[in-house]
């Protein structure tokens, strides 16, 4: 069964179905959360929140509006971004980044583990964006920066960043279109 079919059973309180769904989505959820949050322990915490929220709030899913996996990943991304922003606000982020600078191995290892067809495809499409489109999109999505922060980091006007984000997403859609 795919995620969409499982979600229907999960909405009915079926724990076996949830177990199967867990098998399908825990990797994508955990990977996305870790990509944004970075810190492994915090990533695990956020992924747990997301997966429990999935169980609790499954009745909110409306199949008419998109796939189950999109819904779940949208939820995961929102929670990951919330976490990374509050951590950043608390100044933990800087400390963590300082620590990471001494242990560059983490990202390298994860990239090896994650290497796969989809990863390759997305990466190739990202490479086809202009540098500013790519940076605007990835700083926001993968690093959890607001578009204001992105504008600041790239020294661009706000309007330009908004446009680069839109163009970047649209070109990504064209490039990935056939892969959906």
């Amino acid at each position: 069964m795919d995620a969409d079919e499982l979600l229907v059973l999960v909405a009915d309180g079926d724990q076996k179905a949830f177990e199967e769904l867990y098998g399908l989505v825990s990797g994508p959820v955990f990977g996305l959360v870790r990509r944004v949050v970075r810190d492994p322990a915090q990533s695990e915490e956020v992924a747990q929140e997301v997966l429990l929220e999935l169980w609790r709030s499954v009745a909110r899913f409306d199949p008419g509006r998109g796939s189950a996996l999109s819904w779940i990943l949208t939820l995961a991304h929102r929670r990951a971004v919330d976490r990374v922003r509050s951590a950043r606000a608390a100044g933990e982020r800087e400390q963590r980044e300082a620590r990471r600078a001494h242990h560059p191995a983490f990202d390298q290892v994860s990239e090896e583990v994650e290497a796969g067809l989809e990863r390759e495809w997305v990466r190739r499409c990202l490479e086809r964006l202009t540098a500013l489109q790519r940076q605007s999109v990835t700083l926001a999505y993968y690093d959890g920066y607001t578009y204001r922060e992105v504008a600041e980091r790239l020294s661009l006007p706000l309007g330009t960043v908004k446009t680069r984000m839109r163009d970047g997403l649209t070109r990504l859609r064209e490039c990935l279109g056939g892969a959906a």
């Binding site: 990977g31 695990e44 999109s70 989809e118 990863r119 990835t138 999505y141 993968y142 990504l172």
Partner: peptide, 20 residues
């Protein structure tokens, strides 16, 4: 646009810890 954004998540999957 939200569907486009979600595609960025495709590339990030990683095995979740067993304890989770």
């Amino acid at each position: 646009l939200c569907e486009d954004a979600v595609r960025l998540a495709w590339s990030t999957a990683a095995p979740a810890p067993a304890a989770l």
